[in-house]
Nucleic acid binder design. Structure first.
Lengths: 330, 330
DNA sequence: ATGAAAGCGCTAACAG
DNA sequence: CTGTTAGCGCTTTCAT
C-alpha cells in the first residue's frame, strides 16, 4: 500500500509550525523568519510534499488549467497546434486537459461538460465542423473563457485564425494562372473555406461549378470517397484544391488509384504544410499555415488576464513545389 | 461578470431539500422518494448544475483523471498513440491531462510533478529517451500508477510495447535477403532498437559496423544531420533502417539532397506506418506499429483496477512497398 | 426517506 | 512573525 501523500498538516507538524506558516513559506506570500523558512523547507523536502492543486483550487474558487478541444491528434496539423498550446501552457505553469471531438458536436458538448466539471475555465478549441455552435452558447454565458483556433468560433468569441481568404485566393490565382478552368474543391467538415473558394473564383471571374465542390466528413474513408468520386464524375477537372492535409492525402491517393498522374493529369494544392508534403511523390504545392503558432497564440490569449483582440489573423503562404502544371486537356 | 456556477447548495435550496439528498439523487446512491427525486432533478436542470469534480475528488481522496506524457504531438506516431489513450479514457469517463516532454528527462520530471499536484494518480507515458528513468522511481514509490507505452519503462513497471525485436529482425532479414551488406541504422533518443539492430545483424551472421550506427537527438535538424553525415561518411551504405518516422523522413530528405536515389542507390525502411509512407516518392517500406492500440491498451491498463500483466507485446508488421531494391554497389 | 454535520487540503482573515 | 479558524463543494455517517 502506497503511503498516503503528505499534506500541509504533516509538514506543519514535522516543522513544528502552524499550517498557515507552511502555506506562506511555500507560496512565497507573506513573510517568515529565515530560520522558520529553513525548517519548513526542510520538512517539505523530507516528506516529499507536493501541495494539492485540488485543495488550493477549491479554496481559491478558480482552478487553473487550460482545456484543449481538437478534432483529433492523429492529424499532424492538430498535433502541431496542440504542441503550440502545450508549449504556452507550460511556460505559464498551467496544465492542460485535452479532448478529441472527432469533429462531432455531440462529443464536443460532452467533452466540454467534463471540462467544466474539472473546474477548467479557460479553453482553446477547434470548434467542430457544423459551425452552428449552439454548444458554445451556454458555456460562454457561464463565463467559460474560450478562444477558438484554426476555425472561427460562433458569435463574437475571440478566434486565432489563419488568413484563409488570402490563402485560398493565392491557390486559385496560381491555378488560374496555369490555365486551369475546371478547378475542383475538396472540403471537409469545416465549410468556411468552401465559401472562400467560391469568392476566389469570382474574384478572377470564373464561374463556380457546384458539381466540382465536394465536402467530406471527418474520416479518412469519407475523404477518399469524396476525392475518388470527384475525379470519376468529372473527368474534366484538371486541378483540385484540398482544404486540409487529410483531404490532400485522399486526393493523391485517389488520383493514383485512378491512374491520374500528378501534375500531368491533375494539379493538386493542399492546405497544411505537413512535413510529408515535401516527401510526397511528387512534392506537393501547399498553402502553409503556422499550426504551432496558432495554438501558442490561442493559448496565450486564453491564459492572459485581459481579453485580447477578437480576431487574430496569421498569414498563410503558398509554397510552390511540383504538384501543379499548366493545364492540358484530359 | 459571469454568474458563479451553481453549487450543490443552490440546488438544494431551489429544490427545498438538504444537500445530502441532492448528492444522493444525483449520484444515484441511496434512496429518495420519486417526488423528491423529481424536484431535485428539475432544480439541477434549471440551474444548469454541474457537480464540481474538485469538491468530489477532495472529499473522496482519489481524483480521477489520467496523465499522458509523450515526447510531442506533432509526431504522427505519438499523435495516434494519444488518440488511443483519449478514446479509452473517454469510454471510461475519465479526463486526460497531457504533457509534451520533448524527450527531455528534466521536462519530464517537472511535468510529472505537476501531474501529481493535479491529483492525477494514473498515467501512461512514453518515457523520455535516456532510459535511466530515475524520474520514475519516486513517483512509483509514491503510489503513482504508471503504464509505459511504446518504450519500456525502467524497472518492472508495466509496459505496453510493440514487438520491436521481431520488427527489427524482419527488416534486417529483408534487407539481407536483398543482398545488402552495409546496412546503416538511424537511431533516436530511445536507444532500445539500436541494440536489437545489432542482435538482428548477429542473427544473420553479419558483423555490426559501429560507424554505420548513428543516433540523433529528438529534433528534426539533428535527425537530418545524422542521416546526411551517415550517407556522406560512408558512401558504401546501400541500405538504412530508420528507427522512427522522424528519422525516416530525415533519411529520405538527406538522400535526396545528396542525389542518392531510393531505392536504386539506397534502400530505406523506417519504423511507423504513418499515412504518408504510402504517398512518399517512392512509397516507403515500413515496420508498422499499432500506435492507436498501444495507447488504448496502455490507458486500459492504467485505468483498470486490477494490475495487468507487466508486459504486453503487440505485433509489428513489415509492409513492403517500393523503397528497397536488391543491392547494387555504389 | 431525509437532514445536520464533519472533514478532505488548502488559503486568507484575523489575532496575537 | 506566526498560529487559529473559517470555509471552498462535495460525500458520507449518523440521527431523525
Amino acid at each position: 500500500m502506497p503511503p498516503r501523500r503528505a499534506t500541509i498538516k504533516d509538514v506543519a507538524a514535522a516543522a513544528g509550525v502552524g499550517v498557515a506558516t507552511v502555506s506562506r513559506v511555500l507560496s512565497g506570500t507573506g513573510s517568515a523568519s529565515p530560520e522558520t523558512r529553513e525548517r519548513v523547507l526542510a520538512a517539505a523536502a523530507r516528506l516529499d510534499y507536493r501541495p494539492s492543486a485540488l485543495g488550493r483550487s477549491l479554496k481559491l474558487g478558480r482552478s487553473g488549467g487550460l482545456g484543449l478541444l481538437v478534432p483529433g491528434l492523429a492529424n499532424t496539423f492538430y498535433g502541431q497546434l496542440a504542441d503550440g498550446v502545450l508549449a504556452c501552457a507550460r511556460s505559464m505553469g498551467e496544465h492542460v486537459v485535452v479532448g478529441a471531438t472527432g469533429d462531432d458536436p455531440e462529443r464536443e458538448a460532452s467533452l466540454l461538460g467534463s471540462l467544466v466539471e474539472q473546474g477548467v475555465e479557460r479553453v482553446v478549441a477547434v470548434p467542430s465542423g457544423d459551425g452552428l455552435g449552439e454548444n458554445w452558447e451556454p458555456a460562454l454565458r457561464a463565463g467559460l473563457r474560450v478562444v477558438f483556433a484554426g476555425r472561427p468560433g460562433p458569435g463574437s468569441a475571440p478566434s486565432v485564425l489563419t488568413d484563409d481568404r488570402a490563402g485560398v485566393q493565392a491557390a486559385v490565382d496560381y491555378l488560374g494562372g496555369l490555365g486551369h478552368r475546371s478547378i475542383g474543391f475538396l472540403g471537409g467538415p469545416a465549410t468556411a473555406r468552401e465559401r472562400l473558394f467560391r469568392d476566389a473564383l469570382a474574384a478572377i471571374r470564373m464561374p463556380a461549378d457546384e458539381e466540382l465542390i465536394v465536402a467530406a466528413r471527418a474520416t479518412r474513408d469519407s475523404a477518399y470517397a469524396a476525392a475518388a468520386s470527384l475525379f470519376q464524375r468529372r473527368p474534366d477537372v484538371t486541378a483540385v484544391l484540398a482544404a486540409d492535409n487529410t483531404l490532400g492525402e485522399a486526393a493523391v491517393l485517389a488520383a493514383r488509384e485512378l491512374d491520374l498522374r500528378i501534375p500531368r493529369d491533375v494539379s493538386v494544392i493542399m492546405f497544411d504544410d505537413v512535413p510529408w508534403a515535401e516527401l510526397c511523390g511528387p512534392p506537393l504545392t501547399v498553402v502553409a499555415q503556422p499550426a504551432h503558432d496558432l495554438g501558442y497564440r490561442a493559448a496565450e490569449l486564453a491564459l492572459r488576464d485581459r481579453p485580447g483582440p477578437d480576431r487574430t489573423l496569421l498569414p498563410t503562404e503558398l509554397i510552390v513545389r511540383n504538384s501543379c502544371a499548366p493545364r492540358t486537356p484530359r
